[in-house]
Design a protein around this nucleic acid. Structure first.
Lengths: 315, 315
DNA sequence: CACGATTGATACGGAAGCGGAATCAATGCC
DNA sequence: GGCATTGATTCCGCTTCCGTATCAATCGTG
């Protein structure tokens, strides 16, 4: 009575073969149950689907119509099962990535591309968030994973380092130190610095200030701005100097020169995600990130042609 | 294991309510079988669809996706059942109507419109056929029903009269008899006649020739053509006279005058169909035709304003 | 902190449904 | 006219399913 999937499968095979015996053989059942299931289907529908004589079986007009519908439904069911399994395996779905502009400069494009190649049916939603908002965004479930310079990590958030690189100095092209192949950090002691505001980007703020303090001086902060690109721009205008991750040297500004520093501070970027996040795409994304991490050291070199002298980011 | 429809319905309700007890109540079953069916569904898919704690139920990402799919499939199944039942009732489907141009002049448009109003989801395929080909077309199943002036009817074909009307004379406007309100058929004895070829339209041929013979003369056939419209056109050009069904007077040609004849021969049109035709739309179509037949007599009058004097087609 | 209420999972017994072998009735072929 | 084929029917054994009762885990509350 309640219209079973089995009846649909039986019906479609019978409608294809128009022969109870052969259809039953294809279905790996004997003929009597097939007759009964078809009869039950017809009774459930209240419609005669086959016109039987004792010698041949024919579809009625209603049967022909139901044949198309049933085949479509069975195909849709099969597709639904497959796509659901793919969803559970993380091969399809949506992963919401919250990224900070500061952290996205080098890692994000490669990671997104790698993930897209590995999981072509999974979609990534990229949303920019402020660094201080990232943790809350992850914990509240608004984003599945974040890419950032790590900072104070609350309980419930996991972290995976993806990228390690040295800080380098960035100077105006006409600066007295700009022609040197390498400088020491403390040679910048008297220079006007351009840094990040501690309120919105504490990790980046600490990165520059902390590096200077390690080398024994308190930097003279002349300007603060949120974006690393802006820092480099301001440097190129001659407004000051700064310390930035080496990958920023990808910016090919005529007025700015990137110089390696001796015994540089290493800074890292990584993925942050909520420990309880159940998005099936997340493990695959993390795996891609681990792959990126393994490839990173040589890649850093290739990406930073302007910087002479190699500093390898061993991880 | 084999993925039942019931499991889909159970799953959708549970995904809607996210509460085993309430979902079971909505499904009019108790809670344990629901738990088991959901577990069986998850095992069949190999996918965890719900994240259960003892206090709350939540959909996983795969579960959310499967929810959409399952709801779509169930809706498609419901639609398929309804449309199949509608097909079996003849409320939807395709009815192939073979019509002869000669017979379609008056009845066909009204019949098609009536059927279209009564069965808005059923489609009519109109195909013109030559009169002599109609019977074979019906018997071979290329058409479901035909509209024609009846002729020799082979075994296996049914017939239903739909329309009865008198023949009337059609004369050139300048003809010596054209000013009369009515004429006798034998007054046309000496006139050049325009008729149909006996080979392709035997019924129409006999209609004219037989009428003349009934009135005691053999018409002098000057021209033969297949279409009634062409006959009227040729008459309006002064090339001869003819006898045509009264409904042809709907053609408002300046050069042609339609005149009632005394004691006119009545001619009928009707539906012809194969006795074994199982198209579910056919009974409804026949019913519409019976309705047309009942309405025909007054309609004939309204449609033939140029003909003075009423000749009622009693059926 | 302890008790009760709520929720989903599990155990068991009765009943319904399904599949398979045997058989029947109708039809076509030689 | 005998035989083969085809779908329907019957009966039996088994699986599966539902419902009642119960359990384990958790939350709320005083």
């Amino acid at each position: 009575m309640p219209l079973d999937f089995r009846q649909l499968r039986y019906f479609v095979v019978l409608a294809d073969t128009l022969h109870f015996g052969r259809a039953a053989a294809l279905l790996h059942i004997s003929q009597p149950p097939l007759s009964r299931q078809i009869a039950a289907l017809e009774e459930a529908l209240g419609v005669v689907l086959f016109q039987r004589t004792s010698r041949q079986v024919e579809l009625t007009a209603a049967g022909r119509h139901f044949h198309e519908q049933a085949a479509r439904i069975l195909a849709a069911l099969d597709a639904a099962v497959r796509s659901t399994q793919a969803t559970a395996r993380g091969e399809r779905g949506v992963l919401r990535v919250g990224f900070t502009m500061s952290a996205a400069w080098s890692v994000l494009p490669r990671l997104v591309k790698r993930f897209g190649d590995a999981y072509p049916d999974a979609d990534i939603q990229l949303n920019e968030v402020l660094p201080r908002e990232l943790n809350e965004s992850l914990l509240s479930g608004q984003a599945d994973v974040g890419i950032a310079f790590p900072w104070q990590r609350p309980a419930g958030l996991e972290y995976l380092r993806v990228y390690l690189e040295p800080l380098c100095a960035v100077l105006p092209a006409g600066h007295r130190l700009a022609a040197r192949p390498e400088i020491a950090v403390d040679e910048l002691a008297g220079e006007p610095f351009i840094t990040f505001p501690a309120s919105t980007a504490p990790a980046l703020h600490e990165m520059v200030i902390g590096c200077c303090r390690e080398h024994g001086f308190e930097p003279h902060v002349r300007l603060e701005t949120h974006l690393q690109q802006t820092i480099v721009n301001l440097v190129s205008e001659g407004l000051g100097v700064s310390l930035v991750p080496q990958s920023m040297s990808r910016m090919q500004l005529p007025g700015a020169v990137f110089l390696p520093v001796s015994a540089p501070r290493m800074v890292e970027q990584g993925l942050i995600w909520a420990a309880g996040n159940a998005n099936p795409c997340l493990p695959g994304f993390l795996e891609c990130a681990r792959g990126i991490a393994a490839l990173t050291p040589p890649t850093v070199m290739a990406d930073a042609p302007q910087v002479a002298g190699g500093v390898d980011g061993d991880m």
